[in-house]
Design a protein around this nucleic acid. Structure first.
Lengths: 189, 189
DNA sequence: AAAGAACTTAATACCTGGTACTAATAGCAG
DNA sequence: CTGCTATTAGTACCAGGTATTAAGTTCTTT
């Protein structure tokens, strides 16, 4: 039942990681040591008290909520010639990146490109039906992504081909070929 | 500065909803009433104390998060077999649709699929490098989208092919073939 | 204007889950 | 036995409350 200190601390760390809500009392029972020992262990491992841990989990959550509402993900349109070309700029911020490595999530770049492609269409209804995309280099927190969209072909059947290339400085980070449906009300954007 | 009780309680509720982390003391300053009044208000409105509120926010989070990658997912993961298959559910809400026609934006479906595909990868780093997607029917406000991801091929060179199909009821609304890069730290998701 | 109800503030005891610190004890190695 | 690490105990204190009792303060209504 009783394990040596090192082992206990390893397990303690794991246990708390898996369940940040656990109190010192619980832990002391689980490891059959006194509550003070648990507290010494936490100190050495620099693990904060349960209320702080809970607060941390909660505030991470709040970040997530932000990334769900994608309304602001789209970037600023700085140029638009309908049915021809458009440019938008997006500054990569915290809510756009994986917290672990500060690399922008794929759907953020996609969202910028997709909404730019859709905005380009001079019609009441415009929905993406198909896309082929490539991510050519990762984009980091703080970088500015410039997306350039251009109409390639206006088909007779209500479909329009749009290509989007996104850059950070001189480097291309994303390209996508989109097929946009307009007007007909039976496709998906 | 001082507002009548009813109004204050309305504002109180809103304030706490927007920022569940706020303490009674802060609130009492903000509304220029004593701390006891705030507490009476909370009682009447059945709003729990700050620590309980924080715990609530945190546990909502934890419900969906069993592994690290889950927190990066858009939609609720309901099944996950690493390197094999995964399922997530997303209810389409106001912030996901074009206000004009209440049809979900393409990048919302893409985001669900993309984050599901990335979560599926059993590695520290997982980034989308390429995707081919089709939107087969538009998705409307209030509909529930079920995305099913499945690993098709684990290539030796660190790339994995994942296919995702999303359904509303029986109808397929989206399909995508993703190529995910893992581990190497030189691509883009 | 006086009475009463509604609202607000004050004061005090107590709770949880800790921190910070001091001190005592246990167990074992040399 | 000495010395050292590890553990346990105990006390004072803290934040952010709950719960309760009591005392104002307004507003209204008669």
């Amino acid at each position: 039942m009783r394990v040596p200190k090192k082992e206990r601390q390893r397990l303690l760390q794991e246990t708390i990681e898996r369940n940040p809500f656990i109190k010192d009392e619980e832990l002391s029972k689980q490891f059959s040591v006194s509550i003070q020992t648990i507290r010494l262990d936490r100190m050495e491992l620099k693990i904060p008290e349960v209320r702080e841990r809970i607060k941390h989990v909660a505030s991470e959550h709040l970040d997530e909520v932000k990334s769900l509402s994608m309304s602001e993900v789209i970037g600023d349109m700085i140029d638009l010639k309908l049915d021809d070309s458009a440019i938008s700029v997006l500054d990569i911020e915290k809510e756009h990146v994986f917290s672990r490595n500060e690399i922008a999530r794929g759907h953020v770049l996609f969202a910028q490109a997709n909404s730019l492609a859709v905005a380009l269409i001079n019609d009441e209804l415009a929905l993406t039906t198909k896309a082929e995309i490539r991510f050519s280099r990762q984009v980091h927190l703080g970088e500015r992504v410039v997306a350039k969209a251009r109409v390639i072909k206006l088909r007779g059947d209500g479909r329009t081909d749009v290509t989007v290339e996104s850059y950070v400085g001189e480097e291309r980070v994303f390209e996508g070929d989109f097929t946009i449906y307009r007007r007909g009300e039976e496709e998906q954007a």
